[in-house]
Design a protein around this nucleic acid. Sequence first.
RNA 1: GUGCGAUUAGUUCAGUUGGUAGAGCACCAGAUUGUGGUUCUGGGUGUCGUGGGUUCGAGCCCCACAUCGCACC
Length: 381
Amino acid sequence: MKFTLKAKDSASSARTGVFTTDHGEVRTPIFMPVGTVGSVKGVYHRDLVQDINAEIILGNTYHLYLRPGLDTLNKAGGLHRFESWNGPILTDSGGFQIFSLTKIRKITEEGCKFQSHIDGSRHMFTPENNVDTQRMIGSDIMMALDECCPGDADERYAAKSLKLTQGWLERFYRRFCETEPLYGYDQAMFPIIQGCVYPELRRRAVDHAVTLTGDCAGVGGYAIGGLAVGEPAEQMYEMLEIVCPLLPEDRPRYLMGVGTPANILAAISRGVDMFDCVMPTRNGRNGMLFTWNGIMNMRNSKWQDDFSPLDPDGASFVDRECCKAYLHHLFIAKEMFAAMVASEHNLAFYLDLVRQARAHIEAGDFSLWKEETIRKVTTRL
RNA sequence: GUGCGAUUAGUUCAGUUGGUAGAGCACCAGAUUGUGGUUCUGGGUGUCGUGGGUUCGAGCCCCACAUCGCACC
């Protein structure tokens, strides 16, 4: 994987670039739709490509490992062929899922034991078998196995957690270097910077990861994890201001799991290049729409008789073909089509947002545009 | 026609020895950040079928009427 820096904003740390994988190019800053179990819920690949303009999507190691399982994925020839997506795929390692949705888990230095949320069966992820698993899935970018520390953890716990993550990173990296891709195309890995909301821990985490992996061409970029997990947004921005300047300039930076449109613009201005978040799809499925004019809850009865288009300034065909009253009706009637329309719209909006951010960084007026846009998109309609 | 039962929130139903009403769902809002098609939080929206009576006080007791259901002529 190769990253080329293209333009830098003079008034902020925002930048544009492009990275290349064997499945295609990705322009940064970019938003990556989440396709946990091998599908971006409710959206055809055709629409992802032609309407939403997605350039890379996510899959999740935890979910895919449990179902359909490695055997099936391997027989299929990897996740790309299995789900018929020819663009780049990034897989999360599953560390976050073990933190967020498995209550029954035991984390040790060796790895993480957990029970399946599907059938209660017992499993263990180690850094080594996690590399093997992501090789089997065949993603273009694999994420290191980490422990996601809660946003309200005290410094002692956060330090202990970081030490564990660092040990896992060393082993993950070693295994990554020792093994080869299985399906004939290149795979990169991203270390994950943890350290909770503690500046010194964050600095230590960057130093450790960059010292360990900085010379390796296979390390495609660096991720910032453990943010947007309960701490105030301002604290998240502070951490970005500490971490980003310490990361190598010639590698993309990925802020995991973030976030709202405002979060994304704020992070871009602090030097972040990649984002993923369930918000446009999950919240979309539940009636929340992000538009250029603000945020709407389509379940609200105020839309009952509003026949104006969803988002007159929107990038998707649904923004013009579908009116607010109709989408409101679909949600109230619990039609699955409601979730599809909302997901299509929200993802198109997110991709449009980063596309416009790129254009304004390159035009040199990003900061002004960002302030104006944050004000617009955070309005409650 | 006769007998029995029912009638309380949008709906299905609770409601103690008589002290001006509650629950689920629905509805109305809010939350959701490396996805369990969710989950969580808050909100009661009522002429207790109608009209009388007893009582300090009636959703509850008495009478009449209305409507619905069941059974029997």
